[in-house]
Computed example of a mutant assay.
Amino acid sequence: MNYRIEEMKAFSVVGFKEQVNTQRAYEDVPRLWMEAQEKGIFEKLWNYREQDHPIRGILGVCADGDYGRNEHFDYIMSVVSKDTPQEPIIQRHFPAATWAVFELEGDPSGIAEMWKRL
């Protein structure tokens, strides 16, 4: 599993948000990636991306789950961007912080395995 620790300045992401049941996340998140590929979501997001930012690519952001204490959390398939999107795309801001960045290449089914390893 490739990962790195990075200090990041404040940044924003734009993306598509789905609510995920915490108990079903291992099944639902890979399904969301497969559906996004079929619906052309990656291409739509790619047009918003900030090309020079150190975080590149499509991100899967887990938010508002109170660290696993809620029955649901928001999963935001997104890219780093300075642009203000139009609905249904949302924008989310993050303050400067230290981040653990995990990289995954290949089939979306690998997401569940990565989470289990974490």
Rank of each mutant, 00 (worst) to 15 (best):
E87N: 13
M114A: 11
G15H: 05
A97R: 10
L104N: 06
V80A: 01
G110T: 02
Q19W: 09
H72R: 06
K39Q: 13
V29D: 02
Y3R: 07
A63N: 06
E27H: 13
A100F: 05
D52Q: 15
P95Q: 10
D74N: 11
T98G: 02
G110F: 03
F11P: 00
R92V: 15
W99G: 02
F102V: 09
L45S: 00
E6R: 09
Y67A: 12
L104P: 01
L118F: 12
N21H: 14
T84Y: 08
P85Q: 07
S109K: 15
E43H: 15
E35Y: 09
T22S: 14
A97C: 11
F94E: 01
L118E: 00
F73Y: 15
L104F: 08
Y3L: 05
A100M: 09
N47R: 13
P30N: 05
E35W: 04
D83I: 14
S81E: 03
L104D: 06
M34N: 13
E6S: 09
M34Q: 11
P95D: 07
P54W: 01
E7W: 09
H53D: 03
M1S: 07
T84S: 12
E105N: 13
K17P: 01
E6T: 05
E18M: 14
F73L: 11
Y26S: 11
N21C: 14
R49L: 01
I55W: 01
P95M: 06
E6D: 11
P85D: 07
I90N: 08
K17G: 02
Y48C: 00
E6H: 10
E113A: 12
Q37T: 04
R92Q: 10
I111G: 01
N47Y: 10
Y48A: 00
W33P: 04
L104K: 07
E27G: 14
F42G: 04
P88S: 08
L32V: 10
A10D: 12
E35L: 14
M114K: 06
Q91T: 06
K82N: 15
A96V: 05
L104I: 12
Q86W: 04
E103S: 15
V61Q: 02
K116A: 13
A36K: 00
E50T: 04
E113Q: 15
K44H: 05
I58M: 04
A36Y: 00
V29H: 06
Q91D: 04
P85Y: 07
E103I: 11
K44D: 02
A10T: 12
F73H: 04
M34V: 14
D66E: 13
R4F: 11
E27N: 14
V80D: 00
R92G: 04
T84I: 13
R56N: 08
D107K: 10
A112R: 01
D107A: 06
T84H: 10
I90H: 08
A112V: 03
A36S: 10
M34Y: 11
R69A: 08
V14G: 02
I111C: 02
A112Q: 04
G40Y: 06
M8Q: 07
P108F: 02
V29L: 07
K44T: 03
I41V: 15
M77W: 10
R4N: 14
R24M: 13
R56Y: 07
D83K: 14
H93K: 07
